[in-house]
Amino acid sequence: MIHFENVGLRYGMGPEVLRDLTFDIPKRSFQFLTGPSGAGKTTLMRLLFMSLKPTRGLIRMFDRDISVIPGEELPLLRRRIGIVFQDFRLLDHMTTYENVALPLRVRGKEESSYRSDVIELLKWVGLGERINVLPPVLSGGEKQRVAIARALIDQPEILLADEPTGNVDPPMAQRLLNLFIELNRLGTAVIIATHDLTLMDRVNARRMILSEGRLDIYD
């Protein structure tokens, strides 16, 4: 599904922040991406989301070489990926419900076709009582759950989540992890970037450890 081969990336004339990354993300797989702060986790997530191009090496997404994909096709490929940004990126003028429904709305779907799904998912992430609330009123943890719900709503083929449990208490972290596991069971490949060792210990999943720009994988 995703294939990295000798991928390297540097910002400008600086040193390489990612070096010789070679790995595959198979379909229906579940993995944690971890490593110390500044190791390049967010950069790697951006490469996976195609919001950055590598300075060297080959990346294939959905059997396509991303270096030759024209710009206008990117939105269509991104529709197959759900992403939870570290800074959430919610739209402040939209309610929780509207933010979660946004990916479906931009795909031109009728509201009546997704209304119950969005409400059900919001209840699942514990936001059933916050459906009509605007993001500025939400806590950090609530915003994070809205961002997660938005990434999951269209059942993506790949889920990329950058520190998805960083702002929630342990019971909610467990609940969200269960949600990711359930999603994975239904066929979505999941990549979770996290520092949370407790979270990683709860699932027997592949660990991708980034250190000084190099990647070690423990299956």
């Binding site: 939105p75 269509l76 938005r150």
Partner: peptide, 16 residues
């Protein structure tokens, strides 16, 4: 700009 960015990243096409 942030709205354009979010829409772009959730899969909205440029024309939309």
């Amino acid at each position: 700009r942030h709205i354009v960015e979010v829409l772009h990243f959730v899969g909205a096409e440029t024309g939309f």
